[in-house]
Amino acid sequence: MSGAALTTGTIHGIGLGPGDPDLMSVRAHRLVTSARHVAFFRKQGRSGRARGMVEGMLPAGVVEFAMEYPVTTEIPLAHPGYNAALSAFYTDCTAHLRSLAARGEDVVVLCEGDPFFYGSFMHLYTRLKDDVPVQVVPATTGMSAAWTASGRPITWGDDVLSVLMATLPEDELVRHMEAADALVVMKIGRNIDKVRRALHRAGKYDDAWLVEYASMEGQAVQKLSQAEGRMTPYFSIVLVHGNGRRP
């Protein structure tokens, strides 16, 4: 092995969990508290939720790299400019991280939830994994925190669980909802009315629960029907619990 390969730094994609610092893994905590370089995603003008989750944990002198999304909800997902803007953004972020690794620097990339579960880090991982060492630290997902907050198991026996994005077309939501025994619906936000209609059509509206800010400050759990007529925050998950085979 060459000397250059021995000095190449490692990119660590660190899953921080659903929000409560107490739910962070020991490995994630160790890497965060010893980091020399930290990168994190955030919206323009925001501090970044992942960054906020490690407030007070980072060592003195750590170098921070904020990766600010060029777009979030300003243009539709189907707009040709959306993918183009994000692709260029991830390419630029990757180039910076690659340059740090080439200098022998390890970099901790902070990720909400689990890095491989609908996370932005995946777009960096696929661009980096063939060029520099990349290590991923898994974590408790937001949906796990949500069904735990509901106080009921999400699946029993051989229940089939479907995880759906509320950004799907309504007919697609209905098709998946009808086929599954248990449901997790994410990315609610402005899609809440579409989700309500789909659940009604699938015959599962009365069994749906809404969990807001699972494991975070402001956590709230209620039947979805009790939240009729109002919008929901970004960190919201809709659940339909399974009721399958049990002893």
Rank of each mutant, 00 (worst) to 15 (best):
G56D: 05
M67H: 07
A220I: 02
A88C: 08
V109Y: 11
V160Q: 14
V160A: 15
R230H: 09
L86C: 05
F40Y: 15
R152L: 06
T7L: 13
A220Y: 01
M186W: 05
S2W: 01
R51D: 07
L183C: 04
A50I: 03
L239N: 07
P247E: 11
K129I: 02
F121Y: 15
E55P: 02
V62R: 07
H176Y: 12
A166L: 13
M1I: 13
H123V: 03
S120P: 14
N83G: 15
S120T: 15
A180H: 04
D207I: 00
R51Q: 14
G119N: 12
H37C: 03
A202F: 01
G151Y: 02
W147T: 04
Y125D: 05
E212Q: 04
K129F: 11
F121A: 02
A35L: 04
I237Q: 03
I188T: 09
G104L: 01
V108Y: 07
V221L: 06
S150N: 12
T155K: 05
T7W: 12
N191G: 04
R30E: 14
V63G: 11
P153E: 05
A35H: 03
R42P: 09
P18L: 05
F40P: 05
G229P: 10
L23D: 00
I154W: 08
T141Q: 11
A227F: 06
G218F: 08
G52P: 07
S215I: 00
S99D: 15
E112Q: 03
F40N: 01
R46F: 13
S87N: 15
H79V: 01
A208K: 07
E74P: 11
T72Y: 15
A220P: 02
F117R: 08
M122H: 15
E64H: 02
G81R: 05
T73H: 11
A35W: 09
P153G: 00
Q219I: 03
A145D: 02
N243P: 02
T73L: 10
L124D: 07
P21A: 06
H79Y: 00
H200I: 11
S120Y: 13
G9W: 08
A28F: 09
A220V: 04
A145I: 02
